[in-house]
């Protein structure tokens, strides 16, 4: 899409706001609608938009596929390890009360970390799915 100036410039202006909105959705999930899943999707949407306008080749330069796969896996690992930390600190699996001295602080940390895990996984998976679909070439019979 080299000739579509408005689209290219508009995308460049929009992307920082999309990323910022994703972070807002992530950290405002305690007070309003939203959370890790929605934030991850919006974060991924920024990169999908970039790939749609500037081409998949440029998007792969910004965000290489292997980094995306690492994201997809490490979010789940973060989630699981939060549960394991609770186990090692003497509580049940995914018991946040034991994560800090004050149970409510522990809950706060636990929710923050698992939501971060969900964000990272959903972001990675959504971009990976997009790369997988968009990266295939049409096979003409």
């Amino acid at each position: 899409m080299d000739d579509r100036l408005i689209l290219r410039v508009g995308t460049k202006i929009l992307i920082p706001f999309i990323l910022l909105f994703a972070l807002y959705v992530q950290f405002h999930g305690d007070y309003g609608p939203g959370g890790g899943f929605q934030a991850g999707v919006i974060f991924a949407a920024a990169f999908v938009l970039y790939a749609l306008v500037y081409g998949l080749g440029n998007a792969v330069k910004v965000l290489p596929p292997h980094a995306v796969y690492v994201c997809g896996a490490s979010g789940v690992l973060l989630y699981i390890s939060v549960g394991l930390v609770g186990l090692f600190k003497g509580g049940n699996y995914l018991d946040y009360n034991v994560l800090a001295h004050d149970p409510l602080h522990g809950q706060h940390w636990g929710i923050l970390l698992v939501e971060l895990g969900v964000l990272i996984t959903v972001f990675g998976v959504m971009v990976a799915l997009f790369y997988a679909f968009a990266g295939r070439r049409r096979i003409d019979p």
């Binding site: 959370g35 549960g83 939501e115 895990g117």
Partner: peptide
């Protein structure tokens, strides 16, 4: 204030872990 978040991420965090794993499996 958003009880949905506290249910999803704390009370029902086993379920959310399963969902995260499902998304990873989809990838």
């Amino acid at each position: 204030p958003n009880v949905v978040t506290s249910v999803l991420a704390s009370y029902r965090s086993y379920d959310t872990m399963g969902e995260t794993a499902v998304i990873f499996t989809a990838m």
